[in-house]
Design a protein around this nucleic acid. Structure first.
Length: 808
RNA sequence: GCCGCUGUGGCGGAAUUGGCAGACGCGCUGGACUCAAAAUCCAGUGGUGGCAACACCGUGUGGGUUCGACUCCCACCGGCGGCACCA
């Protein structure tokens, strides 16, 4: 009887479900291991082949750890709020919740078909009011601690976004366009909810040190947080009482400041601009306001600006500096104002060249006619800083600024606060009420969850005001206090990142109605020991989740400072043509078809055998077929045409498989520990190849082999395990061990080299001494061809390995 | 421009500490089985030369260290990803 994947996979899927095989108890004497996949968004497209890659990796680790005696938490759930469901609802008139649930059912069925050992009793869904109650609860705590606030700020406004435009977070802007959909983004002042992530900047940066994450991701987060140390310097404005505060990392170049630049949105511009420059300035501001972020950066490296007619006074030498405005100075960084040192800053240099402003070097070393010099050197033209190098001058300048009350040392961050509100229906309502008396309150904790109202297709359509469709939900929207004061609910909802910023905590205690999760259970299960997902979440999800986790740690809700101890990014699976899979290129592979045609075990084996988990690698249909052929081969090794265990599986051990079996246990164990799934599989192949050449297959080795196969191809392994006469499932059977003694041999093959090139080999006793090895080498015919008649200069011999004779 | 990753047969990839480059799989070639084919099993398979033993060349390019380099060092080239006026 041939290997029938459909029958077997159906049988064991049902068995695991009926027996709740993978339910993880909250109380156990076993050590715990928490394995997590990144929260999937249940799209209408279903799984793509990238999903099973990461999921198979975590599933192998989960199954391996169970066999190693760990209590394994391996849950899954749905990050189900988000735009596609809302857009679908507007188009079809269906409720987004219904659409979402349908998608979840598809995902669930697919994931179950792949045999992942998930504890389904812990399934969660961000759109479930019992879940988003706690997202809202965390928001209220942030609000109470002053970390959630509403502010009129410069936001990233994408007016062309379907559904009447949307505000997105800084992290969601890529190349001046929205990350989703690629709509152009404009800077626009709007009143929005903001989370004070900057309050955690230092900790988010410093605590990266202790995480076992890919260096690339840590580096991206470091860069995103962008901590820099410099000085704040106050410049008086000539003829006014006002001062302009600038931030600079190079206070040592203060003597080289030749002009100042304000961002076009700076508060002081209107006040200080001279009447004859007013028109020019206003025109420039208007021009900048219509530019998208893309036009301000990518498309336009050419500097623009306008002169205000006003002058600032350099505190260090009293020099009068013209004050310009230019969009190369960003209002959102530092104070939105700079001192320009054209001799030693590339941007200032370009601007000075264009507008013919003076350039005076204050550090020796460059040629200011050619380019800005940003390197180290001796200070010149700098009064009391003359003769000092860069670092000495920075320190001296800061001391001077502080002594003369003209400035101080200052730390700055690139990171900005997290713009948190979205003008959308299908998200967690922000639990705030705005009262007609101008006050604002939270929805009382005992009234949470604040549920989303049901809405008709018409109501879901954009309100046209840039407000969320919730503004159309009149009944839900308006509230009246006991004292008769009327109020209006906040109509913005939370971004999709809200639900995914803490979901890993809910898996620990998914049905708790009293608290977010029981502290005792959190103490047992946290942290996540292994977190696997794509690298695209490097700064979005992973930074937000760390921020919320640290906040919850400060509240005493969670016991750990960081949520994810070890992070692994799986590589992308490319199309057969080595290009990214996409519908337009027609190279998309549907995992359902592979499961149907070859079986889930084949898909799992193939995706793990393709190459290292972390690397991108191209799909190959031939490769899939090869993986299936190998599983067929495994089946035939143990099962005969009648479907019975083959006769040559015996209790007798002739010993010819001793070595390869023990080697295999050693290598597979080591490889699984280190997530080298491709080489683990190749070792299992080596074992099978040898087993085919053996007349007798010791049942002990066959059991061990099937156990090692089980994490990778669990359906087939359960079936073979049963055929081998085992009555319990394979999942909790203790992992096989190897005998070190079986690995040592009496003889070893050594190589003979002449001048580092291999010229001969010989099999010798394992304990052969150096001299004997050298004698054997010199006696070798081919070695003699290369050493005869030549002077032996040196002989290197490592016992048991090789002899190298150096002649000259 | 800056940062990170990466480059090995026809293809995916392997090589623990600097010690036989190419494990394993795909593809290809040959053989066995078969009336035949498929499937399967067995064997071969980096390039060049040679009947062969064997020799020479070979891990992106150029140099270096070493008895010995895919591995370490220097310089460069290509690919992928990220950031990009952050003062």
């Amino acid at each position: 009887m041939a290997y029938n994947h459909k029958e077997i996979e159906h049988k064991w899927q049902k068995y695991w479900e009926d027996n709740q095989t993978f339910k993880a108890p909250d109380k156990s004497d076993k050590p715990k291991y928490y394995v997590l996949d990144m929260f999937p968004y249940p799209s209408g497209q279903g799984l793509h082949v990238g999903h099973p890659e990461g999921y198979t990796a975590t599933d192998i680790v989960s199954r391996y750890k169970r066999a190693k005696g760990f209590n394994v938490l391996h849950p899954i759930g749905w990050d189900a709020f988000g735009l596609p469901a809302e857009q679908y609802a507007i188009k079809t008139g269906n409720n987004p919740a219904g659409f979402t649930n349908k998608n979840v059912q598809v995902f669930k069925k697919q994931i179950k078909s792949l045999g992942f050992s998930i504890d389904w009793s812990r399934e969660i869904n961000t759109t479930d009011p019992e879940y988003y109650k706690w997202s809202q609860w965390i928001f209220e705590k942030l609000y109470e601690k002053g970390l959630a606030y509403e502010d009129e700020i410069m936001v990233n406004w994408a007016p062309d976004f379907p559904g009447g435009g949307i505000v997105v977070a800084n992290e969601e802007v890529v190349d001046g366009k929205t990350e989703r959909g690629g709509y152009p983004v404009y800077r626009k002042p709007m009143k929005q909810w903001v989370l004070r992530i900057t309050a955690y900047a230092d900790r988010l940066l410093d605590d990266l040190e202790e995480l076992d994450w890919p260096e690339a991701i840590k580096e991206q987060q470091r860069h995103w947080i962008g901590r820099s140390t410099g000085a704040s310097v106050n410049f008086k404005v000539d003829g006014f009482d006002d001062e302009i505060e600038v931030y600079t990392t190079r206070p040592d170049t203060l003597f080289g400041a030749k002009y100042m630049v304000l961002s076009p949105e700076h508060d002081l511009i209107e006040k200080i601009t001279t009447p004859d420059q007013a028109e020019t300035i206003a025109a420039y501001q208007a021009m900048v306001a219509t530019k998208s972020d893309l036009e301000r950066t990518d498309l336009n490296k050419d500097k623009t600006g306008a002169f205000t007619g006003a002058y600032g006074i350099n505190p260090i030498n009293g020099e009068k500096l013209p004050i310009w405005i230019a969009d190369y100075v960003l209002s959102s960084y530092g104070t939105g104002a700079i001192m320009a040192v054209p001799a030693h800053d590339e941007r200032d240099f370009a601007f000075a060249k264009k507008f013919d402003l003076p350039i005076t070097p204050v550090i020796a070393g460059g040629d200011v006619n050619e380019a800005a010099y940003t390197g180290d050197g001796t200070h010149i033209n700098s009064g009391f800083l003359d003769g000092l190098n860069k670092q000495e001058a920075i320190n001296t300048a800061i001391d001077w600024l502080e002594d003369n009350h003209a400035g101080h040392k200052q730390v700055n961050y690139r990171l900005r606060d997290w713009i948190f509100s979205r003008q959308r229906y299908w998200g967690e309502p922000i639990p705030v009420i705005h009262w007609e008396d101008g006050t604002q309150t939270l929805v009382p904790e005992e009234e949470l969850p604040l549920r989303l109202p049901e809405m008709t297709q018409d109501q879901l359509k954009p309100s046209g005001t840039g407000e969320s469709p919730l503004a159309n939900a009149t009944e839900w929207l308006n509230v009246t206090r006991e004292d008769g004061v009327k109020g209006r609910r906040e109509t913005n909802t939370m971004p999709q990142w809200a639900g995914s910023s803490w979901y890993f905590l809910r898996y620990v205690d998914p049905h708790n109605s009293k608290v977010l999760a029981d502290p005792e259970k959190l103490k047992y299960w946290m942290n996540v020991d292994l977190y696997v997902g794509g690298a695209e979440h490097a700064v979005l999800h992973l930074l937000y989740a760390r921020f919320w986790h640290k906040f919850l740690y400060d509240l005493g809700v969670v016991p750990t400072k960081e949520p994810f101890q070890k992070l692994v990014n799986q590589g992308m699976i490319l199309g057969e043509n080595h290009e990214k899979m996409s519908k337009s290129k027609g190279n998309v592979v549907n995992p359902d078809e592979i499961v149907n045609d070859y079986g889930a075990d084949t898909l799992r084996v193939y995706e793990m055998f393709m190459g290292p988990l972390t690397q991108s690698k191209p799909w190959s249909e031939e490769g899939v077929a090869g993986s299936r052929r190998w599983l067929d081969r495994v089946w035939r090794l143990l099962v005969d045409d009648e479907g019975k265990l083959r006769d040559h599986v015996t209790t007798v051990n002739p010993g010819d498989l001793d070595k390869v079996y023990n080697q295999t246990v050693k290598k597979v164990t080591d490889d699984l520990e280190n997530m080298r799934f491709n080489t683990a599989i190749s070792q299992l192949m080596v074992f099978v190849n040898d087993a085919y050449k053996s007349d007798a297959l010791p049942i002990e080795y066959m059991n061990g082999f099937v156990q090692m196969l089980a994490p990778i191809a669990p359906f087939l392994a359960e079936e073979l395990w049963q055929k081998l006469g085992n009555t319990e499932g394979v999942s909790y059977e203790p992992w096989p061990t190897y005998d070190e003694n079986q690995l040592v041999e009496n003889t070893v093959e050594i190589i003979f080299q002449v001048n580092g090139k291999v010229r001969g080999k010989a099999t010798v006793a394992i304990d052969i001494d150096k001299d004997a090895m050298v004698e054997a080498a010199k006696a070798d015919d081919n070695v003699q061809n290369f050493i005869n008649g030549k002077e032996i200069r040196k002989v290197i011999a490592i016992p048991g390995k090789f002899v190298n004779i150096v002649v000259g």
